[in-house]
Design a binder for these strands. Sequence first.
DNA 1: AACGTTCTCGTAAACGTTTACAGCCACTCA
DNA 2: TGAGTGGCTGTAAACGTTTACGAGAACGTT
Lengths: 338, 338
Amino acid sequence: MAEAKKSTLALVAERAGVSIASVSRVMNGLPASQRVTDQVRAAAEELGYVPDASARSLKIGKTEQIALAVADVGNPVYVAMMREISRVVTKAGYRLVLSSTGSDPADQIDLLVSLNKGYADGLIMSPLRVPAELGAQLRSSRFPIVIIGSLPPGVELDNVRADSVTGMALAVNHLAELGRERIAFVNGPVDTVPGSARLGGYLKALAALGLHHNADAQVSAKDFTYKAGLRAAATLLEQSTPDAIVCANDLLAVAALNVATRRGLRIPADVAIVGMDDTDIADLANPAITSVDLGATKRAKAAAKLLLRRLAKPDAPVRKIVIEPTLTVRGSTVEPDR
Amino acid sequence: MAEAKKSTLALVAERAGVSIASVSRVMNGLPASQRVTDQVRAAAEELGYVPDASARSLKIGKTEQIALAVADVGNPVYVAMMREISRVVTKAGYRLVLSSTGSDPADQIDLLVSLNKGYADGLIMSPLRVPAELGAQLRSSRFPIVIIGSLPPGVELDNVRADSVTGMALAVNHLAELGRERIAFVNGPVDTVPGSARLGGYLKALAALGLHHNADAQVSAKDFTYKAGLRAAATLLEQSTPDAIVCANDLLAVAALNVATRRGLRIPADVAIVGMDDTDIADLANPAITSVDLGATKRAKAAAKLLLRRLAKPDAPVRKIVIEPTLTVRGSTVEPDR
DNA sequence: AACGTTCTCGTAAACGTTTACAGCCACTCA
DNA sequence: TGAGTGGCTGTAAACGTTTACGAGAACGTT
């Protein structure tokens, strides 16, 4: 296996004493005589031949690449998704190209048009917000896209989303069963898709239980980060005295946990805390945080499979998948046995 | 901007009434008359023309893609690196393709040969281990690679690494200055590059201070994860009674923190803890964890720039960069003012 | 007015594949 | 033995760009 220069189909053909068509055929496993097969294999081996991806792409019109656009690589839940998507598409022979757009809609639109360069066969995207322009662009896009998260009505794309409402109900009901009555909510920005969904779920769950909603018991962090969570939690605890806090996010939950602890509150005795997403950090906290698993990994897997399916059969009917949430109970709501 | 079908250079040329060469020229900003420029611009706009990436790649021999291979996307420090690398290369007009190899050397070698397909112009790689085969493969590889982490001698590649030894010294000295004398060490696997480097640094730092090294005061987790850290920390606290623990990793540090706390030890009064990498989670812990910043972001940035530089001038001399560590002091070693 | 420059533009040849098509050969079967 | 069949193989065209080259056109110089 000499690794000298880049070797092409033509070089291998010459060396093997056959035509380039024959080389191409044996490389692709198409029928060929034993004699030709052996000679080509040998020549290819000697020259260390590997077919060129660009040329192949150009000819067959596929890149064997899938683009992934996530809003924020900093959030552990996106990392989990990314990892799973990477796993699935790699196994299917695709490469994953990472297109980290900010949450800036202009970026996302740029991304969509640049996708028309055809450097990827499909796109998986999880936007925090879906403004009108993005919706329009998505609708008129001419190649496979699957969206993780809710879509505005009228956009007919494969999509998989979490059931935040049920998730919130799980959290709130769990707290209510523990006898908590003043259940506060630390949310992220309400102008995001998850933010508004979770707020809706929270209110609905309270109402279903006949619990009174106190406006002081609900704050919105500036974004879904720990730092923003610290401020939001501090505000919350200034203006009210909840006996439980549900948070839109594990990062926000850790923030609430730490703020509460530093104020001398005991967790869960004085205030119980539940997070959302069930990421690794729920487990790292002390006490570990009860969290609603919105099925990030499952969503990622489903999205990847949806895209692969669409690549295989481009005009299959659009599919929308909803992943059911589950609750993982930890020390932040019930004292562990000792 | 009609978005009907994929439009090519030829279509635009026809519409504009010029040759395809002219279209190509104005798209690439090469000199052209005002008349032609305007006509082409208009036609391109109307047809929603975007040049095809594969065809372009094939012709010019560049893909404008950079591959990134990291051992474990689960570790926050790699996420931080990824994010920074993504930022830098994107700004330079490259796309980032993610090649998540496990730590399996066979995978990594597969990756290297598949890179010869030419789907990327260069590679940034941060291997946990560098076995002989990988070293050989790296040495004989025929295109730009930069390695984050230490290299075996004889491999002449651009590389940027952390100074674990100095980093360890920072941690140990800090603890010594606080009057700690029984400084234990929770390491990751010693057969990894960072694992062995950090062990070396630990021993050296102890020796420099004239502190006695007790074999019971040093344990190795099975890998660099939180879960492994829990076991390792438990073992450590069974077999010795340190007044300080330095950890090879922030995840291991959180684990040590939690194990110690659950055993009724007060942090930092009874035992001080320092982590390494200074990732987000050092800040999330309660108390927040003092951590040695090995400059993950800086390393990532340096690596990306090194690769871009090599792509620009392929036979520049090999460069090796070492990033100096810094210490961030938090509540796990000194009680915060109240 | 003839000539040399400079500038612009079109023609055509690549880049490295895949694949339709046709040719060839060795068969089989009558 | 001749035509028909089927399997391999080579020739060549395509995929959508970039770019060397040469032909004109426009201009300035003598």
